[in-house]
């Protein structure tokens, strides 16, 4: 069996006037958690929709479990669990019936469906709400149920489109813990997210996309070290003398209007120097994050 669960080559998606995905190539190995990052409109959801066969592919090649998707799509789809971006739980059914009914769409035998349902209700701490109507669930519980539903067919690949968008910190951490458990159990996961913290925590490898193209690919820590360095210094408010100083010293910085973010690669004493020379401004030293990489690569303009 091939170790690559997903392999995509020169994949394209074009709508009437828009190229949403512009010839991207990547692969996801078995047991890996792979991230698709990018601003709104980068083409993440379009890519995912092609992956699970919802949208027809406009060009390029797409293989799932080593097979061309166009041939074995029904078999491939029965091995994938999908957590779509928008909330589409069935509001006409209870929590438990959502899972049981979804299991039927996969043609699971009744016994298996019931076992999986009870197991997943416990795994996602929903067993006390099994008879509750969907409308009465909190945002966090809904998300957990969507995840449970995506796992009902015991998939070999879990696809998550922004799994924690709109959740409070407690719910988000709970979802992360569950996903980490699943990853430890060997499940292959493909994830899109806007939260860099989430990507850094969960993803073994990731790509950052913008305007339908892949900008970079790598492990989160490698990308941080390559594009930003070990630490950054934030200074606010910025002014011309500060910028002049940074430029004469040849230091890289990003100007965010109300604050400057200085990328520091080599100089261990830089923070002390800046804090001394520019006393009276707020100087903060912090480790570089994936968010710094993301903003560095995709720019600061709003995508609307």
């Amino acid at each position: 069996m091939t170790p690559e669960v997903i392999s995509v080559a020169r994949l394209k998606k074009t709508f009437a006037t828009l190229t949403a995905v512009d010839g991207i190539s990547f692969f996801v190995k078995r047991g890996e958690c792979f991230g698709l990052l990018g601003p709104n409109g980068a083409g993440k959801t379009s890519t995912i929709r092609m992956l699970y066969g919802y949208s027809p592919v406009s060009g390029g090649e797409l293989r799932l479990f080593g097979q061309r998707m166009s041939k074995n799509w029904r078999c491939a789809k029965s091995r994938i669990g999908i957590c779509q971006q928008e909330d589409n739980l069935d509001p006409d059914l209870s929590v438990r019936d959502n899972l049981l009914t979804y299991a039927r769409y996969f043609d699971l035998p009744t016994g298996t469906a019931q076992q999986s349902t009870e197991h997943l209700l416990r795994f996602f701490s929903l067993e006390h709400r099994a008879e509750t109507n969907i409308r009465e669930l909190s945002g966090g519980m809904k998300r957990r149920l969507v995840l449970a539903r995506a796992l009902i067919n015991n998939p070999d690949l879990l696809i998550l489109d922004e799994p924690t968008t709109g959740l409070d910190p407690q719910s988000r951490h709970q979802v992360w813990e569950r996903l980490e458990e699943l990853r430890t159990g060997g499940l292959t996961i493909l994830l899109t997210t806007h939260y860099m913290e989430e990507a850094a925590r969960l993803c073994d490898r990731l790509v950052i996309m913008d305007q339908g193209r892949i900008l970079v690919e790598g492990r989160p820590q490698e990308l941080i070290e390559k594009y930003v360095g070990r630490e950054v210094i934030e200074i606010s408010p910025p002014d011309a003398t500060l910028q002049d100083y940074l430029e004469t010293r040849g230091l890289y910085y990003e100007n965010f209007g109300q604050r400057l973010v200085v990328h520091n690669r080599a100089d261990a004493a830089l923070f002390a120097t800046l804090a001394d020379n520019f006393a009276g401004r707020r100087c903060t030293l912090r480790p570089a994050t994936l968010e710094d990489v993301f903003l560095h690569l995709t720019g600061k303009e709003l995508r609307e």
């Binding site: 919802y54 789809k77 779509q84 589409n88 069935d90 769409y105 996969f106």
Partner: peptide, 13 residues
């Protein structure tokens, strides 16, 4: 409104 068809299309249906 309910996106029930979208959810179904994420299965082998």
């Amino acid at each position: 409104y309910q996106k029930t068809f979208d959810a179904m299309l994420a299965t082998p249906l």
